[in-house]
Simulated assay, not measured.
Amino acid sequence: MISKRAKATAGTIAALTAGVIALSASPASASGTYSGLAYVYGAGVFTDDWDNEGIVDTSHNTTSNATCLWQKVLWADGELTASDIDGDFGPTTKAATARWQTKFQVTSDGSAGQNTWTAAGNWLRNSSNGFDGTVARYIGTEFIIDVTRDSDGYYHFLDGAGAGRIAGYNYHTC
């Protein structure tokens, strides 16, 4: 027969285990990522923020706000038109990505993975109007994109229609 003390101890252990599991649960991660975060993320200096971003291509995070941000980069470098910024990584974005990769001397496979995001991140600069370190600019060959980081380090940007968006891998509002 199991004593009341043993039952109480077992119940306490089960409750503590459930609590630890609940506390350690993280937000949904992005599929095909290096950082495992659900958002395009950064901290500290801007130029290394995108060194561990997830993949956006025709197989990973295909329809997402992270894809929309990537399309803004392609637009800033003259590889897409503003009307192409829709958050859907289709054949037009794949071809534009391959051209961008060739231009910036990254292996050209049409997929924005770690090396491609890292090369793009080299063109992030502090903005003159961002005194607190949360505002940056992507300096494209054709246009400049202003981006911000919130208090959690998540990137925000304006989509092709000028609406504010957060650069997440797991949802699409562009």
Rank of each mutant, 00 (worst) to 15 (best):
E79S: 12
A112H: 00
E142D: 10
T62Q: 15
G140S: 11
A22L: 13
D57Y: 05
A96I: 02
R99W: 02
D48Q: 10
T33A: 15
V56C: 10
W123K: 13
D48P: 00
W75E: 12
G78P: 12
S128Y: 06
V40H: 04
I55W: 14
G130W: 01
T93H: 00
S128A: 14
N115P: 03
A96F: 00
W123M: 09
Q71C: 09
S35Y: 03
H60M: 13
L80A: 13
S111W: 02
T67M: 08
S83R: 01
V73S: 05
A82W: 04
A119P: 00
N52F: 05
D48N: 12
A22E: 10
W123Q: 12
L80Q: 03
D48F: 05
G130T: 04
T67N: 06
T67A: 15
A95Y: 01
L74I: 06
V45I: 07
D49T: 11
A119L: 02
T93S: 15
E53T: 05
G121W: 07
T118E: 14
W100A: 06
N126M: 09
T62A: 12
W70F: 13
T118K: 15
D86Q: 05
Y41R: 15
S24L: 12
Q105M: 11
N52I: 08
Y39K: 13
N61M: 03
D84P: 10
P91Y: 07
Q71K: 01
K72V: 11
G87E: 05
Q114F: 02
A28W: 06
N129F: 07
V73Y: 07
K94D: 11
I55T: 15
L69V: 07
N61P: 00
W117Q: 03
S64K: 08
F131D: 12
G87L: 08
L69H: 00
F104K: 10
V56G: 02
A136W: 02
L69Y: 01
S29W: 05
A120N: 02
V106K: 03
N61R: 07
A76N: 01
Q105V: 13
E53F: 04
I55F: 11
A25M: 13
F143K: 09
Y34I: 12
T81M: 09
F46M: 09
D84G: 11
G36V: 01
A119E: 11
D86A: 11
G110F: 01
R99N: 14
V135N: 13
Y39V: 03
N52S: 14
S24I: 06
